[in-house]
Amino acid sequence: MTWHVAEEDLCAYARGDLAPPLLWSADTHLTACAECRARLAGVSDPVAVTDGWERLDAELDAPRRGLCEGLLVRCGVTDHSARLLAATPVLRRSWLLAVTFVLAMTVLMVRVADSPGLFLALAPLLPLAGVAVSYGPVLDPTYEMAVVAPMHGFRLLMLRTCAVLGAGLVLNGLATLALPGYGLRALAWLLPALALTATGLALTPRLGPVLAPALVGVAWTTLLLIAQATTEGTPAPFTAPGQLGAAVVAAAAGWLLVRLRDRFDTTPAHAPFTGFTHGSAV
């Protein structure tokens, strides 16, 4: 051994006060250094030593984090939040690849047609769909266990929403960078994306996690078709007043969502398309 745990750190370790990363370093060193173990025994009571060994044992037994989970922890997310996020269905590679493919094809079509309309129409729908499939009985295999857990359902929903929105907005942002010729106009999807996602979530307790985002998606498409048919040039949702309207809708839906947060605490027994059909429920 070329080094030993400092006396001060050893005392803190014995008291259970030593914080990571010094704690991990001391844990690892103590497994291999008989001299430090003997010193530790001298400065601590037997119960504390046993606790320390149990902690070390549990730490060594813990599985390696997956790619996504490890990345989140490196970005400063707590380990328990990272595990909750890693279980978000939509964070799976297949979903991210599908969204990337859709965006790449859309960018290609925009370049060919020399109009950003298709991209601006599609980009807000992707985060809406992503959030819709990240929570709820339809696509979350552990939904039933999560809904009866003491962790508040709204907290889990918000964690996942942030993760999905973060991933979705980054991908949309990258696609926007691939359309430099349209300037800030190519960013006009951002506020509608937030408005649609917040509205979809706010309607979920009433309509269920499938119908609510589906209706919001249909409403958005209808609005765009009407705007396209009735106005020349840039469709209304992507003009300055349209963007202001989207911001207002996002804020109002966000307020409503917070007001309805307790409704995410149970599965609505009568909401349509909750994934529990009458037959399977009884």
Binding site: P63, R83, L84, M145
Partner: peptide
């Protein structure tokens, strides 16, 4: 009971433990 197929048995139970507020 549904499972996240890519979780190990340990990770899955750990996930449920987190839902049970064990941070």
């Amino acid at each position: 009971p549904g499972f996240h197929p890519d979780f190990s048995a340990f990770e899955f139970v750990d996930y449920v433990a987190i839902l049970k507020e064990m941070t």
